[in-house]
Design a protein around this nucleic acid. Structure first.
Lengths: 98, 98
DNA sequence: CTAATATATGAACATATATTCAAAGGCTTA
DNA sequence: TAAGCCTTTGAATATATGTTCATATATTAG
């Protein structure tokens, strides 16, 4: 079972992936570190918005930060994150059953 | 990579798990069908609220509906759902690294 | 039929939150 | 030092959404 605190923390983590831009951010740096500027360019949004979102993603340890000179690179935190995205992608690609 | 439509659909699915009550609903019927009334009682919320949430979860095929007499039983849709929840639970239980 | 139980639905509201804009830090080069 | 680039931060706003309440629909019992 799941107590209330665990449920809240889990939900908060899922909530972060529940926004299209944030989800695309995680996807974009799933396998390699990417700078904030490049992430913004890939998504077609402002660096400010990217930074706001990355802050939240990092707080939930969904991405990791790595500073290189004046640039900051982010990448998906661990294998769990990759696995969650992979499974959910399979889920939505599954044809209707029943 | 992930196109905009896929990202939106994926995000919408994650978004549904991003609410503590909805998440607890899925958890509560992860391994067996549970009636709306029992779900409401387990979570300590109204049947109305449960029904609202189940409708959304069902639309995303996160849960399945099964009618028995005047009761309606719901259960988690498939193995992907169970896997996503398991992986994310492991993620939040992981100790801080780096 | 009426009564009772279980579930679903619709509207209304209070709250949360994604986004934008402006400005500030930090680091590198000249 | 100053200038320029990259990133972060804070406030303001428009929108989305979880919850409640009242009501409706369905199914069973008497």
């Amino acid at each position: 079972m799941l107590d209330a605190d665990q449920a809240t923390q889990l939900a908060e983590t899922f909530h972060l992936l529940g926004d299209a831009n944030r989800l695309r951010l995680v996807y974009a740096c799933l396998d390699k570190p990417v700078s904030v500027h490049d992430l913004a360019q890939q998504l077609g949004v402002s660096s400010s918005l990217v930074s706001h979102h990355l802050r939240l993603l990092r707080a939930a340890r969904l991405v990791r930060k790595e500073k290189r000179g004046r640039q900051v690179f982010y990448q998906a935190a661990d294998e769990h994150v990759r696995c969650v995205l992979r499974d959910m992608t399979e889920h939505i690609e599954e044809p209707e059953e029943g």
